[in-house]
């Protein structure tokens, strides 16, 4: 069935047509705007969660050569000869906390083993432990940013 291409009845006057079009444009824009606004409305602007970026303590809390486990943050913070770095303790297999054994890590749940850089040596874990960016706050506190993953080359010289 073909479309008759007959203009909408009742608008022989070009003025009427243009007014109609104007109104229709406004309406259309408003509809699109309404949908966009609804979507934007639903995007939260503040989060009621623990911050993804937090201080773990002054640098002096992590003496040279140390590796400190922070259980409530699920992080290891190391202070090596060439700087600070932070490795997640969350096993990439199913989420248990890995233990720091020797120079590497071992997961007690299913036996995954990681080397000192968090790379998988052995076991069911599919990928390496995550590294997170470390920085120094203006008040000389070490700050971890869980939203900024980094490579195992990362060191913070402080």
């Amino acid at each position: 069935m073909t479309n008759d291409r007959v203009p909408p009845s009742g608008l022989p006057d070009p003025v009427r047509r243009s007014l109609f079009a104007l109104g229709g444009l406004g309406l259309g824009a408003a509809t699109v705007g309404f949908l966009a606004a609804t979507f934007r409305f639903l995007v939260p602007n503040v989060l009621y969660e623990p911050s993804r970026r937090f201080a773990v303590g002054p640098a002096s809390d992590f003496p040279p050569g140390s590796g400190t486990f922070l259980p409530d943050r699920r992080l290891y913070v190391f202070n090596s000869a060439d700087g600070f770095y932070a490795i997640s303790s969350v096993c990439t297999h199913l989420g248990c906390n890995v233990k720091h054994i020797g120079r590497g890590f071992e997961c007690p749940c299913h036996g995954s083993q990681f080397d000192e850089n968090g790379q998988v040596v052995h076991g069911p874990a599919p990928k390496a432990l995550a590294w997170y960016a470390l920085s120094l706050s203006p008040r000389a506190q070490l700050v971890v940013d869980l939203d900024q993953p980094v490579s195992p080359e990362f060191r913070l010289r402080a």
Binding site: G10, L11, P12, L19, L22, G23, G24, G26, A30, F34
Partner: peptide
């Protein structure tokens, strides 16, 4: 039918549409 509506309704439609756009 000659017209859907008298001219003033079209004016109203256009006016409301524009107003709404402005408000938005």
């Amino acid at each position: 039918v000659r017209n859907i509506a008298p001219l003033r309704l079209h004016l109203l439609f256009a006016g409301l549409g524009i107003t709404f756009l402005l408000i938005f």
